[in-house]
Design a protein around this nucleic acid. Sequence first.
DNA 1: TTATCATATGAACAACTGAACATATGAAAG
DNA 2: CTTTCATATGTTCAGTTGTTCATATGATAA
Lengths: 118, 118
Amino acid sequence: MSNTARVCECLYVHTDAIEQVKAKLPEDETLFELCDLFKLFGDATRIKILYLLFEKELCVCDIASLLNMTQSAISHQLKVLKNSKLVKFRREGKVVFYRLSDNHVKTIIAQGMEHLAE
Amino acid sequence: MSNTARVCECLYVHTDAIEQVKAKLPEDETLFELCDLFKLFGDATRIKILYLLFEKELCVCDIASLLNMTQSAISHQLKVLKNSKLVKFRREGKVVFYRLSDNHVKTIIAQGMEHLAE
DNA sequence: TTATCATATGAACAACTGAACATATGAAAG
DNA sequence: CTTTCATATGTTCAGTTGTTCATATGATAA
């Protein structure tokens, strides 16, 4: 093998290049949090709920009607989004209104849409 | 509680809000594409692979070594990323080098990281 | 040709996920 | 108090997903 030729590191695992790349990889804990975040966006029902909340706060029943799904299914997903701090809620009598927690949700989804457009 | 087929049993639906919001929801096809995109980022192995490719192109074996996983597992995930146009590859003899397709991957992941930081 | 190396692929399986269903909770009205 | 309505939750279950294992493919060298 010549010195300039790139060789697969299968037999030479500890090269400088490998160590260099490895150094830039975030902690496992961070990466798990990151992919947990993206998992939230990786479901059609949840994406739709978040999209609906772009416009204004909505109650559980509004969302269920809009998406033509059961109240139970929506409530379960709202719980997931709530636990992940992506949505907040306020109670008004028997009705619970949900809204987006912050603008990151919009930005992330917008970025995804932009990717699709190309 | 006999009619289980009913979608939403609520009587108090915010009709005006629903009409306003419904108009802004994208097509189902678009939403499915969008959540399919985010599904790709919703797995720790794939996120790690993409992160590694931030730095430089790597062959399958490099990635397997870096992540301490089997060549088969990496190859399967690279196929998923390849099919989704998130990575490209070039062959050099027996070795196949993978790289990111474009900058959207970086931007989307960066946006996710920014969300975590707050 | 045959051997070897890097990668790809098919099958099998366990773990995870999301919706349906039944039921529980909590708030307001009667 | 009891009833009713909006929402929450526990369980079940089918469908999906990611890894492992075995094997195939494709390129290079002997």
